[in-house]
């Protein structure tokens, strides 16, 4: 066993940590894992979205897409810096995986992580056109805001503060997606069909990013003060928010299972 029970008790009772030297090994490992997953997702998300900039129907949309790419890279860099405080080799990490690589559109990799690449699995799937990118941005943007909201009060204060700074910008990304979606939805029935198909494709993949309803890891993260809300709770909130977003632009939207 270890001699960290005082710290675990402290964390379970709402205590916070502010320096790598005070983090017990298991805590440190889970924190690094979470940061790696966030950084990989932002890098892969930015890389995938970069290819969509030129697909934007007008300059305004291309500016919005370029801004999202820029800011996601910036968010990755901020969190990577904290990983560096823990000894991670930041320079090497940036090019560790081919962030722009995607599997085929209709492959199914389920929930299993792909080797060392810690991006959420939704970021392994390719985007098929502007409308598809906009739909993904609304669905995943909303999920990111909910998930970051939970991390923004976590027990490792430097990371919590970084997530709090990132949160409003991720919120704006989701709003830009909503604006794009409303514009696309107004372009007639062919566009409506396109949105509907994209929602069918992305909805289950984004829903899966919330994880299983109950898992030992979630419980461990809760005891460490890294996570608070249950996965099912956040998933419910997401369903409610995206249903409202889709209902406003997709005729006949009646939710998804």
């Amino acid at each position: 066993m270890n001699d960290d029970s005082d710290i675990f008790d402290y964390l379970a009772r709402g205590g916070k940590l502010s320096a790598p030297g005070n983090t017990p090994p298991r805590y440190r490992a889970e924190l690094l894992r979470l940061m790696a997953s966030f950084v990989d997702s932002e890098l892969a998300g930015a890389a995938g979205f970069a290819d969509c900039i030129n697909l934007g129907p007008g300059v305004k949309e291309r500016i919005a897409a370029a801004r999202i790419v820029l800011e996601k890279l910036d968010h990755a860099e901020r969190v990577l810096k904290i990983m560096g405080d823990f000894g991670a080799n930041v320079t090497r990490y940036q090019n560790l995986h081919p962030w722009a690589a995607r599997i085929a559109r209709h492959d199914d990799i389920g929930l299993k992580r792909q080797a060392g690449d810690m991006r959420l699995n939704v970021f392994h799937y390719p985007i098929a056109g502007w409308t598809d990118a906009v739909v993904l941005n609304v669905l995943m943007g909303t999920a990111t805001v909910i998930q970051l909201g939970d991390f923004a009060v976590m027990s490792y204060q430097p990371l919590a503060e970084t997530f709090r700074a990132i949160l409003p910008r991720e919120q704006r990304h989701a709003e830009l997606g909503q604006e794009g979606l409303n514009a696309a939805g107004a372009r007639g029935s062919a566009a409506q069909k396109e949105i509907s198909d994209s929602v069918d494709y992305w909805f289950p993949k984004v829903a899966a990013t919330f994880g299983a309803a109950a898992s030992p890891r979630t419980e461990l993260l809760r005891r460490f003060g890294i996570r608070r809300r249950p996965n099912a709770d956040m998933l419910d909130e997401w369903r409610g928010r995206v249903s409202a977003a889709l209902g406003s632009c997709l005729r006949g939207w009646n939710g998804r299972a």
């Binding site: 889970e30 690094l32 894992r33 790696a36 000894g87 991670a88 080799n89 990490y93 560790l96």
Partner: peptide, 30 residues
Amino acid sequence: DAPYACKAGVCSTCRGKLVEGEVEMEANYA
């Protein structure tokens, strides 16, 4: 359910302590 992330010796997530025996590390950047 051992902790890991990069699997490339860069991120240090999978760090553990060798209590007995010997190992050889292929790479260590962390």
